[in-house]
Amino acid sequence: MKKWFVLMSMFFLISCAHEQKEQQQSLQQENMTNVSHDGSAKRSDQQQAKRAVDMLKERQDVKDAVAVEANGRLLVAYQVKHLHRFRMKQIEKEVGKALNEQFREKVIASHDLKIFWKTKALKEKIETKNISEKEIEKEMTVIQKLSEEQT
């Protein structure tokens, strides 16, 4: 039994250490590849998106946020810190309210990881490939639909 315990805790510790390392690595990578790390695309037409990201990042319980805007629509995706996820419903409400008050644009806010990934990918595309507003809009519609999907 004792042996088991030691083995188990060893396993646990090892896996913990490993995870941390990996996290660091991925962070470094992000730093290198990302032109900007403030979460919104640096383009003249992405000013509102940048504001939204800054606003969300001020919040204690938000880990990360990205935003993209196009043609009067603002797509905001954010990640809530681990233990704050228990208050997910409330945070969602607060964030939605705050964003809707701040911006005239139609706000699509989501804490979903998949939406976050998608939005981030879109943002990077905007930064690096210089795509047209129409294309951005098209992709945004896809993401919006995905975020509205129900089980």
Partner: peptide
């Protein structure tokens, strides 16, 4: 499923 398919956190449960 979320990474390789179009499932969100909400729909990935199934």
């Amino acid at each position: 499923y979320m990474y390789f398919f179009d499932f969100t956190e909400k729909t990935v449960g199934n």
